[in-house]
């Protein structure tokens, strides 16, 4: 069935092992990508409905998963399991909200390294200092018209979720922004 099929790789030619820009010293940023088999939005009719936290909690309990609020009525989840959508639908009654399958709507790019804040500051009008953007939190923003969700995993690691149709362009923008300090694509 479709769940066992591997989705087409979204990134194109730029996704190969290579270092770009500054070649000497340790790279400022390394990019990797992990396949998220399930990605979904949970939307509730009421602002700050507790079901949003319930959905996030259920996803994170699976381990290695992402779940964070993206709006007053919205949450985003991403994990490597196939069966999250039915589980989420069972948590959200129709009278209170809805679950939207976005498993193919977004892609996940992980950016990690000592200069990751510097690089991301070129693309997003966000304060990436760790005092302002704490590990374990996620935000919704955009680079020009390319919407992206951004989740901070640790001091030096972020995972970004742009829309699939912009994946190649967004990867190109990340690589270009990282060239100043040296950026590695670890395909």
């Amino acid at each position: 069935m479709a769940e066992t099929l591997v989705p087409a790789h979204p990134f194109g030619d730029l996704w190969r092992d290579a270092r770009h820009g500054r070649m000497d010293g340790a790279p400022g940023v390394t990019l990797t990508s992990k396949l998220m088999r399930t990605m979904a939005e949970v939307a509730c009719f009421a602002v700050d409905d507790s079901l949003l936290s319930t959905a996030i909690g259920a996803t994170r309990a699976k381990g290695g998963a992402f779940g964070f609020r993206t709006g007053p009525q919205r949450a985003f989840i991403a994990c490597s399991h196939d069966d999250m959508i039915p589980q989420l639908k069972s948590l959200i009654p129709v009278s209170r909200g809805a679950v939207i399958d976005q498993s193919h709507g977004r892609v996940a790019i992980r950016a990690q390294g000592p200069d990751v804040e510097w690089m991301l500051a070129k693309l997003f009008a966000l304060d990436f200092d760790i005092r302002a953007f704490k590990p374990g939190t996620g935000v919704a923003s955009a680079h020009h018209v390319v919407f992206a969700l951004i989740y901070r995993e640790s001091d030096t690691a972020f995972t970004l979720f742009p829309h699939r149709s912009f994946a190649r362009d967004f990867l190109g923008a990340l690589v270009r922004a990282g060239e100043e300090r040296g950026i590695v694509v670890d395909a």
């Binding site: 939005e41 009719f45 976005q102 498993s103």
Partner: peptide, 9 residues
């Protein structure tokens, strides 16, 4: 009622 873009999905 909620609306969500699924153009990319």
């Amino acid at each position: 009622c909620v609306v969500t873009s699924v153009t990319d999905h």
